[in-house]
């Protein structure tokens, strides 16, 4: 029988479950979120684990903060079996220690590296590609549609950068929003905030100026669409305001 273990979709929930599995020397067939669609041959096991902040301290002291950083980025990725990747990576860490990250012959290590690159790259790219528009209320509002769950990483970046502004970023794929009120960040489901998406008077003027600037700055004799697409893939275009007329 395929024994799959269920967790509550949170990072701490996953860590708590993995701690339970590692302690009991249990090898799961898979680790799944509570809304995961499973086939008939899968036996779902629900374990009551105590989930609290202390589990994070346990993992950091046992595996080191670098490892937990790797693991967290895997968790933010959209890879369907990321949980079992994390489990096997940590299991191998227990066997090999910190040098496990260099063992690229292990599939879980390759996956951890690959997903870290993906998540890190997308977060970095979006730090540039996010476009805010100024609403009538003065709030800056942006929508994103990233492959990975990077909203929190972005929010931390903008908290430094636009620290005296009110801003909201919405992940349209995951239907979550991040609100910043010049002091703190709040992450919540989109239904909890009604956004009146009417832009300020100045907004149209500056958007217009930016679009002009974007076209002016290109050197016609150097036109290179392939190069542009490499750096700025089409999937991001719907939310990049200067690409409006090329979408």
């Amino acid at each position: 029988m395929n024994n799959s273990y269920e967790y509550d979709a949170s990072f701490l929930g996953l860590l708590s479950l993995i701690k339970y599995l590692l302690k009991g020397k249990i090898k799961p067939y898979n680790i799944i979120k509570d809304d995961y669609q499973v086939d008939l041959f899968t036996n779902i096991i629900k374990v009551k684990v105590t989930k609290d902040e202390k589990v994070m301290d346990f993992f950091v002291s046992r595996f080191g903060s670098q490892t937990m950083h790797y693991v967290y980025y895997v968790f933010l990725s959209s890879y369907p079996n990321k949980e079992i990747v994390i489990y096997y990576y940590l299991l191998n860490y227990l066997k090999y220690g910190p040098k496990v990250i260099y063992k690229r012959d292990l599939k879980c290590v390759r996956k951890v590296l690959e997903l870290n690159k993906k998540v890190g790259n997308e977060a970095h790219k979006l730090k540039g590609f996010v476009r805010f528009r100024e609403l009538k209320s003065g709030i800056l509002y942006a929508e994103i549609n990233p492959d990975n769950d990077i909203l929190e990483l972005l929010a931390k970046h903008f908290m430094n950068r636009l620290k005296n502004e009110y801003w909201v970023i919405k992940d349209v794929r995951r239907k979550i929003i991040c609100i910043y009120d010049t002091k703190k960040i709040y992450v919540t489901e989109e239904d909890n905030l009604k956004i009146i998406d009417e832009v300020s008077k100045n907004e149209i003027m500056f958007k217009d100026m930016w679009q002009d600037f974007y076209h002016t700055i290109a050197i016609k004799m150097r036109k290179n669409d392939r190069c542009r697409l490499n750096f700025m893939p089409k999937k991001y275009w719907p939310y990049i305001v200067e690409m409006e007329d090329e979408r």
Binding site: R161, L162, K163, Y214, N224, F231, M232
Partner: peptide
């Protein structure tokens, strides 16, 4: 650098790419 509005990013950030494929990072 850090300010009341704005901060520099140690690795730099590209915000857009023009039709010639060059990065747009600064208001040039």
């Amino acid at each position: 650098r850090k300010g009341e509005i704005g901060s520099a990013h140690i690795s730099g950030i590209c915000h857009s790419f023009s039709a010639d494929g060059r990065c747009i990072s600064l208001l040039k």
